[in-house]
Nucleic acid binder design. Structure first.
Length: 542
DNA sequence: TCTACTTACACTTTTGAATAGG
DNA sequence: ACCTATTCAAAAGTGTAAGTAG
């Protein structure tokens, strides 16, 4: 269950010698992933004692954290074709979904895992002649939002026990999205980033040395679209996404024809059949994309003023995805809806038992309990209780300049823009100054800065007064996001009250502040946070 | 006319409540 | 009364196709 087949290759990215799992780790992780996967396991470290050098321990631990991308091969397939992600007004999940295997954490230390998606470059793209071309300068970046994993904060043992899935993350092109989805511009290129923030009471809130790390997998970069442009991507999605089974090819004859025609994509779909009927000469020729150049500048590990960044192994740098120059060798023709073959009807569907399922194997973090249960049940912090995600969104320029926290009214649920988002260039693990924890009102927003390297400083200079978080009810947020789309949704269903809010737990407030003060301090961009409500009684296992 | 976007639709998986059985 | 397994309908996630807007 935990060791999915797609992970083994991903783990190559962080294979590193190190001591075996500690007893504490084994005890807390009933299904230690390392043993089954052959990973040697990085040093997990012991929980820092009261008198220990907490700072040194934290830095050591954070640097030992390794992250492997799940289903890396699938991601690579998409990457080679030029990954596209649909963005809709209501929000659309990513596929492949972002799942990682984490090792090297201190089993008893609590961590917060979150994702942001940053522009990969300054360009706007268009799909022309079956390849992506630069179509001009990028539009102003959308509000910077974070997707905090619903289990956050949780112990290292919890994160390491199983795959960490971000599959419920949704992308939208609605600038006024009230659900906390990550807002993107269509026809722009983006790079997801995973951030791991150490968050235990020993050194998270108030310590000067709390560390975080950022992990980037270049193969997860994508171009956001409102409808698929590249038929290869459409085909890959249909082949691999269980929800798209209805669009797969139908009978055995189809399959046979498909396998005769294509070794790369053995399963043929109706769409590809239509395409091939129109354009019989189909092949796939990888082309070089601009991301390659961007990522060539990346290093496997980057240490910068104590900052530490892990990147997938160098050989995993993008093969090529989004060509900047025309490549006449591509022969997937742009087939528009009005093409003459669209009404071709193919035989009935068949079950695709042989087709790999990317979702069916995901049994982690399912069925989040009601919010009240999260609040009341001690099992909330257990290693098995899933939770809905919190979305943290960026504060806009109108907030960025506000220095006072208490003076601010509760922030609206609207989106705010990155003050200035520079294209993604790198990533790091950092140790930063921490703003001493202060109690916050129920609603407060934060001007937060995502690391933008290499300009990111290892030491935060963000004054505490500039931070103000937005704290929203996790239940209402998640319900709205998962159950209650707005009236604009095609299929409107029962909606919970959007504005239902509950007082936040001081623990999560502290986490929010921590996220702000520790992690995302930069002058280039800002994030508006609206977090889930605090539900954790104890930050540490002790 | 073209491109990007929206929306309804059919099909699929997921989820959770209801029910049955031990 | 409690627990587990099964069933089933609703909810939610897909890409497609048709239409709209600029």
């Amino acid at each position: 269950m935990l060791q999915d087949k797609g992970l083994s290759e991903s783990e190559e990215a962080f294979r590193a010698p190190g001591p075996a799992l500690s007893e504490a780790s084994a005890a807390n992780a009933p299904e230690p992933p390392l043993a089954a996967t052959g990973l040697s396991g990085a040093a997990l470290g012991s929980p820092p004692g009261p008198g220990a050098d907490v700072a040194a321990a934290a830095e050591q631990t954070i640097e030992n954290i390794k992250v492997g991308l799940h289903e890396k091969e699938l991601w690579k397939k998409f990457h080679e074709a030029g990954t596209e992600m649909i963005i809709t007004k209501a929000g659309r999940r990513m596929f492949p979904s972002y799942k990682v295997k984490v090792t090297g954490m201190n089993p008893k230390t609590k961590y917060i895992l979150l994702i942001d998606i940053v522009p990969a470059d300054d360009h706007r793209y268009k799909f022309c002649d079956n390849k992506w071309m630069v179509a001009g300068k990028a539009e102003p970046a959308m509000p910077g939002r974070l997707y905090v994993h619903p289990d956050s904060p949780a112990t290292g043992a919890h994160w390491m026990r199983q795959l960490v899935s971000f599959q419920k993350l949704k992308l939208t092109n609605n600038h006024l999205d009230p659900f906390g989805h990550i807002i993107l511009n269509s026809m722009h290129k983006y790079q997801p980033r995973l951030h791991i923030v150490k968050a235990d009471e020993n050194n998270a809130f108030g310590s000067k040395n709390t560390a975080f790390c950022t992990h980037v997998f270049p193969e997860t970069s994508f171009i956001s679209v409102t409808s698929y442009q590249n038929h290869k991507i459409t085909q890959l999605k249909i082949e691999n996404n269980p929800f798209a089974k209805g669009f797969r090819g139908s009978d055995d004859s189809d399959l046979r024809v498909a396998r005769l025609q294509s070794k790369e994509y053995p399963v043929i779909s109706k769409s590809i059949m239509r395409q091939r009927l129109v354009s019989p000469q189909l092949s796939a020729t990888p082309d070089v994309g601009p991301l390659l150049g961007a990522h060539q500048a990346l290093q496997h590990y980057q240490h910068e003023n104590g900052a530490h960044t892990q990147l997938a192994e160098p050989q995993d740098l993008p093969l090529s995805t989004f060509p900047t120059q025309r490549d006449s060798s591509l022969f997937y023709h742009c087939l528009k809806r009005r093409d003459s073959a669209r009404h071709l009807d193919l035989p009935c569907k068949r079950s695709y038992l042989e087709a790999p399922s990317a979702v069916g194997e995901d049994h982690y973090f399912r069925s989040p309990p009601p919010y009240d249960q999260q609040m009341l049940s001690p099992s909330y912090c257990s290693e098995v209780t899933p939770r809905e995600a919190c979305m943290y969104s960026g504060s806009g320029p109108e907030i960025a300049g506000v220095s006072g926290v208490d003076d601010l009214p509760p922030p609206p649920l609207s989106c705010n823009m990155w003050t200035s988002v520079s294209p993604y260039t790198s990533y790091s693990v950092q140790t930063m100054e921490t703003v001493p924890y202060q109690p916050f009102p129920t609603h407060f927003t934060a001007t937060t800065m995502m690391p933008r390297l290499p300009t990111l400083s290892a030491q935060s200079s963000q004054p505490p007064g500039n931070s103000h978080f937005s704290v929203y009810n996790q239940l209402s947020q998640s319900q709205v996001r998962e159950r209650g789309p707005a009236a604009s949704f095609p299929r409107e269903r029962g909606l919970p009250p959007v504005c239902e809010r509950k007082p936040p737990s001081p623990h999560l407030n502290a986490a929010n502040e921590f996220l702000y003060s520790q992690t995302f301090l930069s002058r280039e961009s800002s994030l508006q946070y609206h977090s889930g409500m605090g539900t954790v009684e104890n930050w540490t296992d002790g």
